[in-house]
Design a protein around this nucleic acid. Structure first.
Length: 270
DNA sequence: TTCCAGGCGTATC
DNA sequence: GATACGCATGGA
């Protein structure tokens, strides 16, 4: 990541990043498209990021200080990881080569564990536009994305306070997640340090968290690249292209490969 | 109207 | 352990 301070903004030169492919590909739900880029939040910290020079891979981080860039956004966008190297590895496989070429600007965002957990609880048996709607109403109701403690307090007497979200049967799952995380029964900081199998088992103590939501939490909220969420689309990927198993070249970074494949099959089957 | 969406809990075998 | 079904909501 190279950067230059430009007044109140910072211009960042970064390879292997597309705003559409990274911020609007179903891994984060709080980014909205604006003229020339996206605006959204991470941990209730606002950001507007624009394509400054698309041909040269330059992005404008609006109203961001140098320290904020280095302490918050560099990590969030995973700028320390060489996705070019990752894609070269994946491209040993024919299908993955096509998927990486199709959307080479995908990066795995390093999101907050609680926000990823609760967001992907909402995602189950749901579609992306509607997930965004529910999370938008959630943030509106709480004045920003609620912490587990805030949501636990609001649902202490039941999940009726979440009725306005129109989250359906998922509201009671959110309440259970909030209670267990806020109460320390599920310690997300500890879970983040566990190996994948232990972490998955721990997360699945929460009602409404099965293997898929657990793996999304691990991949997007705990940066466990070995997590491999199997949703309806990825099940189609496996059935169509990998009936005899996943290729060796994705070992250790299965989650990143999953994201390229997820985006690829969605684009061709609609 | 019916089907589907970044699934999971429950019942049943 | 596998399989079948219901579940809230809204768009196609």
């Amino acid at each position: 990541m190279d950067y230059t301070v430009k007044g109140k903004d910072i211009l960042v030169k970064q390879a292997d990043l597309s705003l559409d492919e990274t911020l609007d590909c179903g891994q984060a739900f709080r980014w909205t498209k604006v003229e020339g880029g996206y605006t959204g939040h991470f941990l209730n910290r606002p950001l507007t990021i624009l394509d400054e020079d698309p041909a040269d891979g330059v992005f404008r981080f609006c109203g961001v200080s140098e320290s904020e860039l280095l302490e918050v956004w560099q990590s969030y966008f995973d700028f320390a990881t060489d996705y070019g190297e990752l894609k070269r590895r994946f491209s040993e496989d024919e299908t993955l080569a096509k998927a990486c070429k199709f959307a080479g600007g995908i990066r795995i965002l390093r999101q907050d564990s609680w926000e990823a957990l609760s967001s992907f609880i909402i995602s189950q048996n749901n579609n992306i536009p509607r997930i965004k709607g529910i999370i938008g109403r959630l943030c509106e109701q709480f004045g920003g994305y609620p912490s587990a403690e805030e949501m636990a307090a609001a649902t202490a007497e039941g999940c009726e306070s979440l009725a306005g979200l129109r989250a359906g049967f998922r509201a009671k799952y959110l309440a259970d997640a909030a209670q267990k995380v806020a109460g320390g029964e599920v310690d997300l900081a500890q879970v983040a340090k566990m190996d994948a199998d232990s972490a998955r088992t721990e997360l699945m103590k929460i009602k409404g968290v099965g293997p898929k939501v657990a793996d999304c939490t691990m991949l997007f909220g705990m940066y466990k690249l070995e997590a491999f969420p199997k949703d309806v689309w990825v099940k189609r990927v496996i059935a169509e292209w990998y009936p005899n198993g996943l290729p060796e070249c994705i070992k250790g970074a299965e989650g990143a490969a999953q994201q390229y494949l997820f985006h690829y099959i969605r684009s061709i089957e609609r």
